[in-house]
Design a protein around this nucleic acid. Structure first.
Lengths: 380, 380
DNA sequence: TTGTAGGCGTTATCAA
DNA sequence: TTGATAACGCCTACAA
């Protein structure tokens, strides 16, 4: 007995012909269109005709204008006309063509959340799930559709910028910026309303919303320093992200304020594996370490794993502090002391900020920093 | 010392006025003009007019047609004209308006991956990260842009269907269908090329790609039955998803084939918490159980947690088998025996299938089922 | 309350 | 090789 009967096996290895990824040489910004035209050539698909507003109007015996008014729920329409149009709409199964509407209104009623990072990595970090929750909360009741965009492999990073600047969305939320990403500049010069989630590294004149990473790290340093630990190290984030830089700066500042020095610094990439590798390096260089601050919970988890592998216990031998207060922190064994970051609020705030930008109703604060706080648990 | 100097605090609680969801208000030209004046006054967003093809053509001293040809890299253009247009394009910073282009060509060069489930939950499951990886791999070199869509709270489920049927994308990949979701039907009747990831529950005439959940579960049943375990139970997936149904059916069939009966069944929602709760219920009903098959790794992890909390050891007291072979399975303690599912290949295959649909080049197999296999580890 | 006509920015079809 | 001209589907002053 099989669960399903109409399946076919074995054909899934067949690969449709790949279009060449290169277009006409030249380098002008419009040359990319050549590549895209290529795509159009590769299929004469028999698309069924979709009913248009014109046909609805004709069937209802009114003009396009009246039909349009009915469909957009405007007033100044007789009950008779409204009924006729409604009837025609359902009879024809009419659906307004958003492209045409957007072309005319210059509004798409959709926003983009673009993660300036490779997609597959993104979803591994619980940060994004929480951020998304916040964004959705901020969007509730607006009728705006959110689309998620990420770096695709085999596609230049600029493709994202082109998509966003080509009128597909009314505004953009950009998160997880690395180094000197040109995307914010592109968006700004294209006039696409944009709010950054996370302080940008380069000075670009766009508003951003961020957590107070600096003071969160200060708190972590204070906590470990006050815990009577002797040799303290830190697993910092990437050097090319503001979040990594700010947390490291805060840590250093907090340590200095406590009259302590940092025994060692290793950089990770915010992943469990990166944290474990960094911890291993630190253990090799500083066998006597007894306290570590990791710039993310994921890295802290990796650090705990590496410590365990090295025969150290947490928190008896080594105290561990993370950053994020993700779900994993509370359920870790032992539960992870961490710096709470209001991620949902970050997403909500950024979204509201962007909505305000769209409405351009009045003066908005250039940028916002949300508070962070230390959450003490068993790990340190 | 602060990491940044131009931040503003405290204003993030303010919520901008919500725009009406229907396009009635805000559309009058007076309103728009006022908004633009306001924006200009602030100097924040100078709503610069975007250069059009017309202006490019004028500046280059050619017709729109010729300008269009140059920009699309077509032949039959004199070198002189080409140079002039290229020059004008760069001088003006021209970017083609994709909406207008799509309206004319009836192609958007973008696909949607729609997760018929609430967004925040989606990202918590490693399945989606892997699937996305596969989809991106399948898309590599095509120049197609992928957009991710999910259920938003405070928005009716139909909004997704409207977006997809309104011409925003050339094709759609639908994953994680529950019960009688109307989405596939909408897409089909709107003529949007669609491939489902995962067998649909309702009979809708759309191709799908799925893993062989049935036989994977058969293998799990065989494995546990052969391991000399006496009292076997299963944590099944949701009753309203084919993946849940198929794995349960496979389990039952495998058990029957081994001449065994299932002591108990509890349903979970594919989350760690759901798995833990189900395990707890099963333990209460069947204290003597010594083997459990969970229909997902996440639920298996939750089951292990619940078992540990109940004082049972894995695998000595109870053998645990999961489904997915996610990264978490291998790194769990103890490492989790599980059924390997080729998730990346699932994504890649579904994508290729969809690309084939777009090209409509020739007869394609209606649906595809990818093989699954058991991976034995320490947990059972 | 309704219809007419022009525009949104591109592409596609033909003559020239 | 080039350029009018007509789609593409919808919105919206403006006039009736």
């Amino acid at each position: 007995m099989r669960a399903s009967g109409r399946d076919t096996r074995g054909d899934h290895g067949a690969r449709p012909a790949v279009r060449p990824a290169t277009g006409v040489a030249g380098g002008s910004p419009a040359d990319t269109a050549a590549v895209e035209r290529e795509a159009t050539k590769r299929g004469a698909r028999t698309d069924r005709r979709v009913p248009t507003l014109d046909e609805v109007a004709r069937l209802a015996g009114v003009s396009r204008s009246t039909a349009s008014r009915v469909i957009n729920g405007q007033s100044y329409v007789s009950a008779r006309a409204r009924a006729a149009v409604t009837e025609a709409v359902t009879r024809l199964g009419y659906r307004p063509n958003m492209l045409a509407r957007s072309l005319a209104t210059r509004r798409t009623n959709s926003l983009a959340l673009v993660v300036s990072e490779h997609g597959s990595r993104v979803l591994d970090d619980p940060f994004f799930a929480r951020l998304l929750r916040g964004v959705y909360a901020g969007l509730a009741g607006t009728g705006l559709q959110l689309v998620l965009l990420m770096d695709q492999d085999g596609q230049d990073h600029a493709a994202l910028g082109r998509y966003l600047c080509a009128g597909h969305v009314d505004g953009t939320l950009v998160v997880s910026l690395h180094g000197e990403d040109p995307l914010p500049g592109q968006l700004r010069s294209a006039g696409v309303p944009t709010v950054l989630v996370g302080r940008p590294l380069s000075t670009v004149d766009l508003p951003y919303v961020d957590a107070d990473n600096f003071n969160g790290a200060v708190a972590a340093a204070r906590h470990l320093a006050a815990a009577g630990r002797g040799t303290l190290v830190t697993i910092a984030g990437p050097r090319d992200m503001a979040v990594g830089i700010d947390r490291l700066a805060g840590w250093r500042c907090g340590m200095a304020a406590a009259g302590r020095r940092t025994a060692g610094v290793a950089h990770g990439d915010f992943t469990v594996e990166g944290g474990a590798a960094a911890m291993t390096r630190l253990l090799a260089d500083h066998p006597d370490l007894d306290g570590v601050f990791a710039a993310s919970d994921l890295m802290a988890l990796g650090a705990m794993r590496a410590l365990r592998a090295a025969g150290r216990t947490v928190p008896d031998d080594v105290a561990v502090v993370g950053f994020d207060d993700s779900d994993l922190a509370a359920t870790a064994v032992p539960p992870l002391t961490t710096v709470r970051q209001p991620v949902e609020e970050l997403g909500r705030t950024a979204t509201w900020r962007l909505l305000g930008e769209l409405d351009a109703e009045d003066q908005l604060p250039p940028s916002v920093l949300l508070p962070t706080e230390l959450v003490a648990r068993a790990s340190g």
